[in-house]
Nucleic acid binder design. Sequence first.
DNA 1: CTGTTAGCGCCTTCAC
DNA 2: GTGAAGGCGCTAACAG
Lengths: 345, 345
Amino acid sequence: MITIKEIAELAGVSIGTVDRVLHSRGRVSEKTKNLILSIVKKEGYRKNIVASQLSNSRISNFAVIMPLPEQNDRFWQIIQMGIEAEKERLNYFKLKLDYYFFDRFDGNSYIKVFTDAVKTEPDGIILAPVLAVEAMSLADKVPEKTKVVLMNSDLPDFNKLSYIGQDSFESGRTAGKLMSMSNGKSGTIAVIDVHPEDYHIHIRTEGFKKYILDNTNSKIRTYLLPAENDMEEFKRCAQLIDNENEDLSGLFIPNSSVHYFADLLEKSIKDKKISVIGYDLVEANAVMLEKGTIDFLINQQPGKQGELALEYLFRSTVLQERIVEKKFLPIEIICRENLESYIER
Amino acid sequence: MITIKEIAELAGVSIGTVDRVLHSRGRVSEKTKNLILSIVKKEGYRKNIVASQLSNSRISNFAVIMPLPEQNDRFWQIIQMGIEAEKERLNYFKLKLDYYFFDRFDGNSYIKVFTDAVKTEPDGIILAPVLAVEAMSLADKVPEKTKVVLMNSDLPDFNKLSYIGQDSFESGRTAGKLMSMSNGKSGTIAVIDVHPEDYHIHIRTEGFKKYILDNTNSKIRTYLLPAENDMEEFKRCAQLIDNENEDLSGLFIPNSSVHYFADLLEKSIKDKKISVIGYDLVEANAVMLEKGTIDFLINQQPGKQGELALEYLFRSTVLQERIVEKKFLPIEIICRENLESYIER
DNA sequence: CTGTTAGCGCCTTCAC
DNA sequence: GTGAAGGCGCTAACAG
């Protein structure tokens, strides 16, 4: 591996000049600049990141903008743990990480927090754009040099380094397959549209319905649940499902709140052998899975999402590597039998 | 974070002396040694690995002892790719990796290769001990200072740093659950005992049988397949299964060779709607899964096994961190619908 | 515009 | 036993 010293020798200049070219610090004649760049290219120079870190006093500065960790049944906490794990792996490099948490049921809190984060002009931002409308409305406030990684849900029109998450439609189809297997009989399957405005979650229901309608004789009935932060809504919705469907055979809830329904409808689930499928291996859901009230969970590797998000930012800003613009994570199937293997320690 | 220079100042000695103490290079008086160690402890000194790597000319030397990558339907190749991926991540550190491949159907080749590897006195060894008897017989030939990580299958009595792999019994139980779900009817389920002598694989059949017998009315019939490298054996075994079981409803093959059976018995599988469950997301199996001839695969994250194995060795030898002695990886369930999400790029 | 130089923290050699 | 000094490759301030 060639070093700047060797490049300097080859070019007949000093290392200071080479350094200036490599960092585009200007004040170098066009001629020597081109000479140096040609050598860099020809020899395949890559800076020694270890030496660079040792000498460099500059601290990379990253901001994480995401919902409060405790929201969505602490789903976000798992993501945060993934980010922290990756930070630990990178602890010999100079990184600074600031969290900006917002209330995912309050657009204004997002706006405030995003504005704060952007003010610090971070090198990179990890953003969970669950509030799509607000996120898009502020998209152009991201400083020129700041790179953004979106995780968990994508915003196609957002100018970003990369997106990390699941293919929602295929994920829904997989849930459909599991539903069709676990309830042999036909009947009515209730689908809860938890955040109709959240494209990412809504599309899961589309994949699910598609699979069921294409492959089974079951009927599907959709229920809207607009206000996920209101327990009364859950109760009303559960009640409605119970009352309206004598032949209920399945229940599909496209996010982590499946345990509320499993709990509220426990008696019917047992009596009528209703199959229940939901999302996310959060504590409350694991308990219900273990009890047998939930049959399957689809997991979206939240920890891995966090790890990758930070890794990508690091590789892009510090190592200056190219990053894939889209990373779809595995659609994990979790049932009682393999649950244990998915729980750390 | 305190540096050796600061320690030297506190102790009123030079950094050379501090260094000698930290590396137990001797030639330091008992008194100053104790003084320095007490400061180290009190201040919580941890060496700066970045600076250390930069100055250190020493190259860490690791050996990987595993079956030929092309064996077992190229299962081992996936493991190797995982190791290489981790090596790439650690590329700014000085690591040397040598592969020692053996023929997993030839004990002598293992012995030769292992002996060669050990001769180089590596800092660490990644070992896939599929040939349990041979591996144990040479276990005491590992040099004192060499750390060993076992992956894929464990040897409880082997003196090792860590084991990375799956819980075989639970993995078999999960397969049993999937079998019971995917074939609604009862009937006979054929279980192939592929390597009866390979504890790790055999135990999967135990888990599988346990689940089926505890939870269904199906009968189980076990077939031995001792010589996995003989295609004629596969044919004979498949033929036998086909002839002997009019009411065949399921087929469980506890390793990657499931695609051979799926292929040989394709007609019966289609006609009688036999459920087929096997292991490992290798190319040949993915094709059959896509076609619908295999219903489910259990995956054991071979890539991740490789990554972790190297990461553990690195963390233990270079960073001198403590490592968990056992790491069970997730029991992944793969079907046609989520297959795509598990395939890289 | 360009070259020189002093570190970053640790490791290693050599001299006393 | 101990200390001084050079160097790993890169960065950045400074002098010209």
